[in-house]
Amino acid sequence: MPDLSTYDAVLFDLDGVLTPTAEVHMHAWQAMFQELFEQWDISPAYTERDYFDYLDGKKRYDGVASLLRSRDVEVPWGDPSDPPTEDTVCGIGNRKNAVFERVLRDEGIAPYPGSLDLLDKLAAANTPVAVVSSSKNALEVLASAGIQDRFGLVMDGVIAERDNLASKPAPDVFVEAARMLGVDPGRSAAVEDALSGVASAAAGGFELVIGVDRGVGAHVLADAGAHLVVDDLAELVPAVGTGVRFDASAATEGEEPA
């Protein structure tokens, strides 16, 4: 396992990497789209695979448009201020977000223990860390998890929309986050659990792209550009301080992902 403290910085996705909010997002999307598909008589029916293929890691409205397009359904884009009752891309996205916010408010969230341990180790090594999330709820999630003050930078969906940055899998958000943090992607590491996020970091030229397999599949993440795949960030904790560097070129030449 590589020593992440040997990299100039480590940029983390949030949902599914640092906190289990991906599960909340997944359930909120499923509940909303199942009801919508039934109302509009859309087929095939929504499945869990749709979340990974069209929604996971993308900005909210881009995800809505992508999934509807997969069913040959086009609706007006609308405006982010559209109410959840509006049948526009933005309205549908806001409909899902209302469910997510209610669950987060009522139940709260806690970081993955392994992720928290890794953050502790990197903080002790004075390694810069940042969050790169497509979610507009990132700051609220980080605050609910009690880890907001650990990051020198949070690149979220609000900043991406403000600055017209393309959604993952485009490299824009990762590259811009590295620039804002003052580090070179070619000497930094990125950690992602979504196919679109792994592809984004890989396209951004990060020296090490780590995939966290929360259900997508290790080989699928590797095919998307991950140099190394782990089941949990706890696997990376013992390596901090060892000085071990990961040979990404060997992984791309056909080695099995861990």
Rank of each mutant, 00 (worst) to 15 (best):
G186V: 07
V99K: 09
R69I: 04
S115V: 02
D232W: 01
D15P: 00
D72V: 05
S43L: 08
F37E: 10
G114A: 04
E48F: 05
S188K: 03
G93H: 07
L208A: 06
T21I: 06
F246A: 10
F33H: 08
L139Y: 04
D56A: 13
G16Q: 03
P128C: 06
P113G: 08
E86M: 14
W77P: 12
D13Q: 00
V244S: 09
A178L: 03
L153F: 06
M26R: 15
A178R: 02
L165E: 05
V183C: 09
D184F: 05
G243I: 14
G57E: 13
D82T: 12
S5K: 01
H27S: 11
D156Y: 04
M1Y: 02
A166M: 13
V89N: 06
Y7Q: 03
P171D: 06
G63H: 08
A222G: 09
G114V: 03
A189V: 04
Y112T: 02
P171R: 03
A110R: 15
A160I: 13
M26P: 01
S66F: 04
L139N: 10
E176A: 04
M32E: 15
V212M: 04
G225T: 10
S196L: 08
P2I: 00
L18F: 01
A166T: 12
V216E: 09
R179H: 13
A166P: 04
E86Q: 14
L153K: 03
V198Q: 06
Q39R: 15
L208N: 02
L36T: 11
T85A: 15
S115E: 01
I159S: 07
G16L: 04
S134E: 05
A22F: 13
A226D: 03
I147L: 11
N126P: 02
V212R: 02
A248S: 12
Y112A: 02
V24E: 02
K96S: 13
S249Q: 11
P111L: 07
D149L: 05
Y112P: 02
G114I: 02
L236Q: 01
L228K: 00
A218S: 15
T21G: 08
V129P: 00
M155I: 07
G211H: 03
A226L: 04
L67Y: 05
R69V: 07
G57V: 11
A28Q: 05
A201G: 11
L195R: 08
I92F: 09
A145V: 10
L236P: 01
V154E: 08
A143M: 11
P44N: 09
A250L: 14
S144G: 08
G152C: 08
V75I: 15
P185T: 06
A189H: 01
G157R: 03
L221H: 06
V129Q: 00
E256G: 05
A189Y: 00
R162I: 12
E74L: 09
Q30V: 07
